[in-house]
Write a protein that binds this DNA or RNA. Structure first.
Lengths: 332, 332
DNA sequence: ACCGTTTAGCAAATCGGTTTGCACGAATCA
DNA sequence: TGATTCGTGCAAACCGATTTGCTAAACGGT
């Protein structure tokens, strides 16, 4: 009735626990014939090593965690959720193939709550400067890797999202499609992607000699806040004829704002976003976006984390080249 | 340097490990004064019980898993993902408040892969008949609860989605909004929500004396398959003036199909869906949908699972009353 | 014939908690 | 006063793996 243990298996196979352990782990040589016999009997009696026992001995938990500092439940949630969850889905598969469970850390939990989770490592999605999650886990000595650099923390391995290059690509596309005054809408949190995007944007404006028009919105405000803020920007700066709005929820708001101003997309104003989720695809007109290759990114992040857990000093890894997905919102 | 253990704490407090253990677990009475001293010192030296050790002894892993049998990566994925992930987000919070980690099980993994995950219990989201995941975990003796009944498995506790009543509500709304011939589009997998929905639909058709028009689509086909299939249904049955399409990805397809047939929504054909996600909201026109209260459902599911883990014979729990979200797609 | 080196396998210690059985003193009861 | 209970705490067994140190046999070279 009870689950068979390594002792049961050892007894059934007529060897010691040690030999069984070595047969499975390969840490020491075991006669191939013996190993086969052990494996066969293991099959028969349905032996599965007890994870808790393994973890106690090895000091590992066999679990990695995925966290985002974006509240799940705020207005911007569903959109961010798309981004995060696309990563989660791939990461779950990637960890499982490495024999690890992937668990989800809800954002902004108190430290005491987080104690329930003792992962071998953590993947943080687009953390911001002084992110409390970074502090919590690095403080505990748990390896952390991030998707998107942690601003001000060069020591944390990450998958680089190349946000600067992405911004450049989008801005140049907007210009090529006929725009002459391009505005930028990002978030208020100091995430690296915003920082890099803004830097690239300012450099671009400088180069072509236009006055930057930059909006930084509270991410919890979501679509509605963006609609309002963008409308007021468009009133102030009637010359704007294109917007790069990396956060897709904000881009939805921008669509609304344009409509309220009687501006047609793309005739009067062009619009491009970054994350190519449902919002970009279903928008009217559909929005030009960037294929970030989130699956590949998630895979890289898991790999990076595994290396970090194994004590390898990993640096950064670059995400695959982002690609423009051209849609009607930036047609010339 | 090393993390303090229970022995260290016991020594520092001048008591035995036993007393420390009891002080924390409350399984036996400990002098309040002693307990306080222990807790104070625990704070000071930063003692945290080693989860692996606890798990080994208690036979628990402190982890519950969330699984859906819907492939993450197929065309219908992003939509299903929304549904699943809304539940995941809430469930993650709910489990953490109960001192459990929530981990994600990617669908359709081989049994060998799944071995990496040994949860104390599993929440299955809308499983279908003979779902392999149900078999896998019940076979392992792991408590399983589901969101939506498992067809043919009355023994598995679940949060009832009341799909029959939901269908009835939507169908009556469609009729009230002027529809006389209502069609139904569901999925091919035998999920309980489809079964109940179809039954309610047939009963409804019987009652008002219309010929049922029912489509069951392969869920991996997603939007494109639905567009095609619905278009052909509309050709066959030109009298249809309303559709209930519970799966939102299919509903998107139906929108496309209607457009391709030159039918206006809602003038020529009314359209309602179930899951009120981004698709329903962003569709043109926006789709009438059903507020299922997924957060509450997730919460209930976690509670149910905890009870099951603690050996309580839990039955079913009913989800909160679903509510219609009226939108332009069914305006009369 | 001797010594060194593999090869194969075992016994016992170990990880850090929880739980059981028992001891000892103080309080309560007959 | 002797017997019983209660409160408090300890020592040791236990959970099921991994890992270390050791033995004994087989093999090969000189």
């Amino acid at each position: 009735m009870k689950k068979p243990t390594i002792s049961d298996l050892a007894q059934a196979a007529g060897v010691s626990k040690t030999t069984v352990s070595h047969a499975f782990s390969g840490r020491r040589h075991v006669d191939p014939e013996t190993r086969e016999r052990i494996e066969k009997i293991a099959q028969e009696i349905g032996y599965r090593p007890n994870r808790a026992a393994q973890h106690l001995r090895t000091g590992r938990t066999g679990m990695i965690a995925l966290a985002s500092s974006m509240p799940f439940s705020v207005a911007a949630g569903p959109s961010r959720l798309g981004f995060l969850m696309e990563i989660a889905a791939t990461a779950a598969v990637a960890s499982l193939t490495r024999n690890m469970a992937l668990c989800l850390i809800p954002p902004f939990q108190s430290g005491a709550q987080l104690d329930a989770i003792t992962p071998d490592g953590v993947i943080l999605v687009e953390p911001f400067q002084d992110d409390p999650l970074v502090q919590h886990f690095t403080g505990l000595g748990v390896p952390v890797v991030s998707v998107g650099r942690v601003p001000g923390r060069e020591d944390i391995p990450h998958v680089d999202l190349n946000s600067g290059a992405t911004a450049r690509m989008v801005l140049e596309h907007l210009r090529a499609s006929g725009a002459t005054r391009i505005g930028l809408v990002t978030g208020e949190q100091r995430r690296n992607s915003y920082i890099e995007t803004e830097a690239a944007y300012r450099a671009f404006c400088d180069e072509i000699g236009i006055e930057p028009a930059c909006l930084q919105l509270n991410e919890s405000g979501g679509e509605d806040l963006a609609a309002e803020a963008v409308a007021s920007l468009l009133s102030r700066r009637g010359d704007i004829d294109a917007l790069y709005v990396p956060v897709d929820a904000f881009a939805s708001g921008a669509v609304t704002a344009a409509a309220s101003k009687g501006l047609k997309i793309p005739q009067n104003i062009r619009l491009a976003t970054r994350y190519d989720g449902l919002r970009a695809k279903l928008s009217r007109p559909p929005l030009t976006a960037v294929e970030l290759h989130l699956e590949a990114i998630a895979d890289l992040a898991v790999g990076l984390l595994m290396a970090a857990i194994d004590g390898e000093v990993a640096g950064l890894v670059s995400a695959p080249q982002p690609e423009l997905v051209l849609r009607a919102s930036t047609a010339s």
